[in-house]
Every structure is written in C-alpha cells, then in structure tokens.
C-alpha cells in the first residue's frame, strides 16, 4: 500500500468547542489550541494521516484530507 501523505486538515472553527481531545491524543503532536481555544494544525509537516483526531473529535469538526505519496492532485 502506498504511503499516505497529508494534503490538509480541515477544521471547522464554528463547530470546534476546544475540548482538547485531538491535541492530547495526536501521536505526533500536530494539533494545538489557539488563543481562542480552537484546534489548529501547528505542525502539519509531522502529520502521518492516521485520522485519530478525526475519529475522536466529538464536534465532528475535523476532516483530514490525505493523498497517496507521489500522486498528483
């Protein structure tokens, strides 16, 4: 299987309630809360596309868009 590469984190700021679940459990510490307590991708280059943030987000506000490495978008 080709390796997954991150394309973008889509985080709906209106839906995010800043609970911090995505921040705590991201295995690569990609996400952080900003000064308004909304999640954002502070280190997108470290993302491995595991989608655990997307799966656990109780506000349905995160979508991780990935593509296969080498694929042209």
């Amino acid at each position: 299987m080709a390796k997954l590469k991150l394309k973008a984190h889509h985080i709906d700021r209106d839906w995010c309630k800043g609970c911090g679940i995505c921040v705590r459990f991201c295995p690569k510490h990609v996400l952080q809360l900003d000064d308004r307590e909304k999640a954002y991708a502070a280190h997108p280059e470290k993302c491995i596309g595991c989608r655990l943030c997307e799966m656990r987000c109780p506000d349905l506000s995160i979508t991780v868009e990935t593509e296969e490495e080498g694929e042209k978008s």
């Binding site: 209106d14 839906w15 309630k17 800043g18 609970c19 911090g20 679940i21 997307e54 799966m55 656990r56 987000c57 109780p58 506000d59 349905l60 506000s61």
Partner: peptide, 17 residues
C-alpha cells in the same frame, strides 16, 4: 450544528463512529 452537547462530551464521538 454545532450540536448542543458540552465541550468534550463523548456522545459526539459516538455519532461520528
């Protein structure tokens, strides 16, 4: 949306799953 559940409430995760 955004739903009425409190910040961090697990019910949203159940909905997503």
């Amino acid at each position: 949306f955004p739903h009425i559940w409190c910040p961090g409430c697990g019910h949203g995760t159940v909905l997503k799953s």
